[in-house]
């Protein structure tokens, strides 16, 4: 299989993310690594969010709801030039623009803070409804974890989005299968997210979420059905890209040691965008 430029960049984002987790002494690598391709594809020209004009009314809105996994979001935003790469070494430090859970007061270019799970889709529905009422054709995207589909509020929001025919809304579920202390299949009775969303009135599609071509293809077809909200159920791997982290509950919390970091960087064959000079 040949590697695209996007796949190359994915390796660099992963290396950067693991470096940040190491330097900032923050875990949550499972979810940060599982959504790298999703973030890269969204920010590879699909999302219309002009740099320096992140609050322009006509921009697309993006809510990263799985706040704990934000290291890779920060890495992608830095790589895309939304803020200097040098900021990355302030990840999870005091008074940082890049706290361990994203905060709009710390990083105002964001559309939403995140940390408490299950709010991202709801906020997105309110935005999408308000934008449409304004005659604004901007799209609203929420990226949530499969664990957030445990939250009842997610399904209140799913109901609302379908009943109001919010086809300006795209939900992406990072279905990496691993939660904080268990596996999502066990916690959700092995049920299908695509079927659930379909039965809630959504246009749903399941894709290989760590494959950039598949993600790009799905994004290019949004909205899947006119008059329905779209959801991409992205089948991903927790801790994707690093053999000894992949698909293990342990790496939800674990902070990489010096040794873990070196092994991961070696395996990825990539150099982090930035690392703390004096960690």
């Amino acid at each position: 299989m040949y590697a695209t430029a996007l796949d190359e960049r994915a390796r660099t984002i992963r290396a950067t993310t693991i470096q940040m987790a190491h330097d900032g002494r923050e875990g949550h690598l499972n979810g940060a690594l599982s959504c790298v391709e999703l973030l890269l594809c969204l920010f590879d020209g699909w999302l219309r969010i002009p740099r320096e004009q992140e609050k322009a009314p006509e921009r697309d809105r993006f809510i990263f709801s799985k706040g704990h996994a934000c290291a890779s979001l920060y890495a992608v935003l830095a790589e895309r030039g939304y803020f200097p790469v040098s900021w990355l070494d302030r990840y999870a430090t005091d008074d940082s623009p890049l706290p361990s859970h994203p905060c709009i007061h710390a990083l105002p270019l964001l559309d939403c803070s995140a940390g408490s799970l299950g709010h991202g889709l709801g906020m997105a529905t309110g935005k999408a409804y308000g934008l449409r009422l304004d005659g604004n054709s901007s799209r609203t995207v929420a990226l949530i974890s499969d664990g957030e589909c445990n939250e009842g509020s997610t399904w209140e929001s799913a109901t609302f989005a379908a009943s109001h025919k919010l086809d300006n809304l795209l939900l992406i579920v990072d279905n990496n299968g691993v939660q904080s202390v268990g596996r999502s299949d066990d916690l959700m009775g092995g049920t299908s997210l695509e079927e659930k969303f379909t039965s809630f009135g959504w246009a749903a599609r399941t894709v290989e979420g760590n494959t950039t071509a598949a993600v790009k293809m799905a994004l290019s077809e949004v909205p899947f059905v006119k008059g329905k909200p779209s959801v991409i159920v992205a089948k991903t791997t927790a801790g994707a890209g690093v053999s000894f982290m992949q698909d293990q509950v342990l790496w939800h919390y674990r902070v990489p040691s010096d040794d873990d970091l070196q092994r991961a960087l070696q395996e990825l064959g990539a150099t982090p965008l930035h690392k703390r000079s004096n960690p």
Binding site: M123, T125, K127, A128, S153, T159, F160
Partner: peptide, 26 residues
């Protein structure tokens, strides 16, 4: 019309709708 929204018996969603719209200038 459009500015009256019944979120249903879904108080969380009621707040999301109000908050999401407020974040867009409503």
């Amino acid at each position: 019309p459009g500015r009256y929204i019944n979120a249903g018996v879904a108080e969380a969603q009621m707040i999301y709708t109000a908050a999401g719209m407020a974040s867009e200038g409503w």
